[in-house]
Amino acid sequence: MTFHKHHLFWPFAVFVLLLVLNIFFSNNFFSITVHDGHLYGSLIDIARRAAPLILVGVGMTLVIATGGIDLSVGSVMAVSGALSCLLIGDLGDPDGVAGVLGAIAVALLLCLGLGVWNGFLVSVIGIQPIVATLILMVAGRGLAQLITGGQILNVTSAPYRVIGAGYFLALPVSVLIAVAVAIVAGLLTRRTALGLLLQSVGGSPAASRLAGIQARGLTWLVYVIAAVCAGIAGLIYSSNVASADSNAAGNLIELDAILAVVIGGTALTGGRFSLSGTVLGAVLIETLNVTILSVGIPVEATLLFKAVVVVVLCLGQSPAFRERVLRRRTPVVATKEVAA
């Protein structure tokens, strides 16, 4: 009965609609085949493409829950890819697992440092999140270019390739990583009190302070988590293309991530958040991208088509809009009194 009131009803409905649409335009859309013990198919493709967005979206959700925003995630992706590729390229044996793991660890450590920087600016200095993270959004790409020397760094490393293009138990490793991070984030927020305190701080900072919550550390923490998530996404991206491209990596992903968070039912004003909603939002966005291709919408119209779907979805989700549409169906007699 109240199924349509569930906060994920609308994104889920649009998701199903897109899948159905795909059946008419692309043959074998739902077919999943096995090659060399790996699963292949359109659905698997969507999941693989959504993996980086899910990772970035998870971090973004926690930041937005505190009432903040992180614009630097795309640049952090570029930095993490650049550093790991550089280090792997310098290894004597790029196929050595230990060396690759070391490179990944250093890259993620740098991302953690970048998150500390963002969190410091926001929670200690008190700069508005949008401005504070804009600094790293611009500077981060510069840093990535500095690391790669302005070149596109190609790497050939079998172990590194596993992250973005490998398979484990027939499933893409990138998807497994994204799902694992989402689950860890879910456990972290729901099994500890982190989720409750973040919602409280985002929902009412003044009340939270008087309840004894020390928001500074929490706010700092979410920017660190967001940067590490973006760092992992950057590794997946660069591993998949076997190179570090400082300009293309994570370009404009911050906007898609914010969109995924909003589609998932987390308000940009902070407060209540939904990680599962963000994951659904990320999958929905990638499904939309795939649908645009399979339906055969001309390339020049794809952005417009995407915009239309997003607008419809957001309106459907808005309680105020739904109420207005419903009210129009049941006419109300205007009872305006005349001012004398």
Binding site: A193, L196, Q199, S200, G203, S204, A207, L218, G271, R272
Partner: peptide, 25 residues
Amino acid sequence: TEGVVGDLSVRDNVILALQASRGWM
């Protein structure tokens, strides 16, 4: 504005101060 957090449930609101003093972990 400075007391309850409207978007949280009654349960979450009543344990908020206790939880704050324990820390999130």
